[in-house]
């Protein structure tokens, strides 16, 4: 597919999020809000709409040959109450997650939560705004304990490919506080697509190899005897090592065989 068409498809995709979000906020949310069932039903229905929309968007961008997506995740029925920790190489990671896993709980920036266009849709979906770290931990743990599936990008922002991982400690804190089982997901994209600093029209010539691959089930960790700040430091280091090992290969371990070494999932 010529690059120009990819840029066109990307533009359509991006504007559909803005326009669709606005229309859904104005017309869809009020209708869903009127349906019976209260807040939980509104959340469930809004998330169903999001899932269908992002599923279609994932398909559309794939059909435009912007990427080849290979998703390897456990069935949804096995993810209730699971904290998904994923790497974050590009903007589309969120789209992939929302279009692949139904009824997903996300953590959103205040800018998204307060967005005049689609903010209402985001609120109806019951996502968790990063109003304060304590708030996110509290609400995140509650959501997981209710059995929701929550995705968190422990790096906190999109990151450069190839560098060893540096995680914020929030993911470890949430894992410890919620006692939720953790699913480690390697999201990789080669060549990088909509990475940090890229604009929507920065499209690589080749189709990207986009992988969303669960590689380990960890925990539950639960609060132990170690004080929380130390436990979070230890777990963060452990998680960084697991992700580095999995994604950057065994280069950090002397004697490891790059071609053959694969840690069991």
């Amino acid at each position: 597919m010529p690059r120009l068409l990819k840029i066109l498809a990307s533009g359509i995709g991006f504007s559909s999020v803005g326009v669709g979000g606005l229309l859904f906020s104005l017309l869809g949310v009020p209708v869903l809000w009127l349906l019976p069932g209260g807040r939980p039903a509104l959340q469930r229905r809004t998330r169903t709409v999001f899932f269908r929309y992002f599923q279609a968007l994932v398909w559309f961008l794939s059909a435009a040959r912007i990427y080849d997506l290979r998703a390897d995740l456990p069935p949804r029925s096995e993810l209730d109450g699971t904290l998904i920790l994923a790497t974050h190489p590009g903007y589309l990671d969120v789209v992939m997650a929302l279009g692949t896993i139904p009824q997903l709980t996300c953590i959103v920036k205040p800018g998204v939560w307060n967005n005049p266009g689609f903010g209402w849709a985001v609120r109806a979906a019951g996502y968790i705004p990063t109003l304060s770290p304590e708030w996110v931990l509290e609400e995140g743990a509650k959501a997981l304990q209710r059995g929701e599936t929550l995705i968190l990008f422990p790096e906190g922002t999109r990151t450069e490919p190839g560098q060893s991982y540096h995680f914020q400690r929030g993911a470890a804190h949430l894992a410890l506080r919620s006692c939720a089982p953790v699913l480690a997901v390697a999201v990789t994209c080669d060549p990088p697509l909509l990475a940090k600093g890229h604009r929507w029209y920065h499209m690589p010539r080749l189709s990207c190899d986009y992988q969303v691959r669960a590689f380990a089930r960890l925990g539950p960790f639960g609060p132990g005897a170690t004080p929380a700040p130390q436990a979070a430091r230890d777990l963060t280091e452990e998680l960084e090592a697991r992700f580095d090992q999995e994604i950057h290969g065994s280069g950090h371990q002397p004697g490891g065989d790059q071609a053959l070494h694969r840690r069991d999932p």
Binding site: S132, P133, E134, L137, Q168, R169, G170, H173, A228, P229, A232
Partner: peptide
Amino acid sequence: LDSIDAVE
């Protein structure tokens, strides 16, 4: 330290 540590 991060913001969670500050609370601690």
